[in-house]
Computed example of a mutant assay.
Amino acid sequence: MCCVTPTYFCHVFKRSTGRTLTEYVNMLRVQEAEALLRGGRHTVQEIARMVGYSDAGYFARVFRTCKGISPGRYARGGEAAGMMT
């Protein structure tokens, strides 16, 4: 549609944003998950599915990488050691 290859698009995206497309999408998903976790109405497994992860374990690893804390602990009001967003 844009007449560029996916590889070129990803290259330009990283050069423009400083993040890979995957890193950016993960960041957006984690931000949405934070709001859902604060709401306290859903389990971590439900939230993982709601933000686009079919594997709750993988979601937990991505969340911990981005926030420095597990999603379960975040939901319980724990503080992150070093937030990376």
Score class of each variant (00 low, 15 high):
residue 17 T to C: 07
residue 79 E to G: 02
residue 76 R to T: 03
residue 63 F to Y: 02
residue 79 E to V: 09
residue 29 R to M: 11
residue 63 F to L: 04
residue 37 L to W: 08
residue 67 K to H: 10
residue 66 C to N: 15
residue 61 R to G: 15
residue 78 G to P: 00
residue 2 C to W: 08
residue 45 Q to R: 15
residue 26 N to E: 14
residue 40 G to D: 04
residue 84 M to I: 00
residue 64 R to Q: 04
residue 47 I to S: 01
residue 67 K to E: 09
residue 8 Y to A: 12
residue 26 N to M: 14
residue 35 A to S: 06
residue 2 C to V: 15
residue 61 R to A: 15
residue 21 L to G: 05
residue 56 A to M: 04
residue 64 R to L: 12
residue 50 M to Y: 14
residue 20 T to N: 02
residue 15 R to L: 14
residue 46 E to Q: 13
residue 2 C to A: 10
residue 27 M to L: 07
residue 76 R to K: 04
residue 42 H to M: 14
residue 52 G to N: 06
residue 82 G to T: 11
residue 48 A to M: 07
residue 60 A to T: 13
residue 83 M to Q: 13
residue 38 R to V: 06
residue 67 K to L: 09
residue 12 V to S: 06
residue 55 D to F: 06
residue 49 R to K: 13
residue 59 F to M: 10
residue 44 V to K: 11
residue 40 G to H: 08
residue 5 T to Q: 01
residue 55 D to G: 01
residue 41 R to L: 14
residue 80 A to Q: 03
residue 4 V to N: 08
residue 66 C to P: 00
residue 17 T to M: 12
residue 32 E to T: 14
residue 13 F to S: 06
residue 2 C to F: 15
residue 14 K to H: 09
residue 12 V to G: 02
residue 75 A to D: 02
residue 7 T to M: 05
residue 28 L to K: 08
residue 7 T to H: 02
residue 3 C to R: 10
residue 47 I to H: 02
residue 75 A to T: 11
residue 70 S to A: 08
residue 46 E to L: 05
residue 76 R to H: 00
residue 51 V to F: 02
residue 33 A to L: 03
residue 25 V to R: 12
residue 17 T to N: 09
residue 73 R to Y: 10
residue 80 A to C: 03
residue 56 A to L: 00
residue 37 L to I: 13
residue 7 T to Y: 04
residue 49 R to M: 07
residue 14 K to S: 13
residue 69 I to V: 14
residue 44 V to Q: 10
residue 27 M to S: 05
residue 39 G to F: 07
residue 25 V to M: 12
residue 52 G to A: 12
residue 69 I to P: 10
residue 9 F to P: 01
residue 10 C to M: 15
residue 52 G to C: 00
residue 61 R to Y: 09
residue 27 M to I: 13
residue 4 V to I: 08
residue 39 G to N: 08
residue 43 T to R: 03
residue 82 G to M: 13
residue 19 R to Q: 12
residue 27 M to H: 09
residue 50 M to F: 15
residue 53 Y to C: 13
residue 24 Y to Q: 06
residue 56 A to F: 04
residue 11 H to K: 10
residue 63 F to V: 03
residue 15 R to H: 07
residue 46 E to C: 11
residue 70 S to I: 00
residue 22 T to G: 09
residue 1 M to D: 09
residue 30 V to L: 10
residue 1 M to E: 11
residue 17 T to G: 11
residue 40 G to R: 08
residue 11 H to N: 11
residue 60 A to S: 03
residue 31 Q to E: 11
residue 12 V to Q: 09
residue 6 P to S: 05
residue 39 G to Q: 05
residue 55 D to P: 01
residue 34 E to K: 04
residue 76 R to D: 00
residue 1 M to K: 09
residue 36 L to F: 05
residue 66 C to F: 07
residue 37 L to C: 12
residue 83 M to G: 11
residue 60 A to E: 06
residue 14 K to W: 07
residue 33 A to R: 04
residue 32 E to I: 15
residue 77 G to C: 06
residue 39 G to S: 05
residue 71 P to L: 06
residue 51 V to L: 03
residue 56 A to I: 01
residue 71 P to F: 05
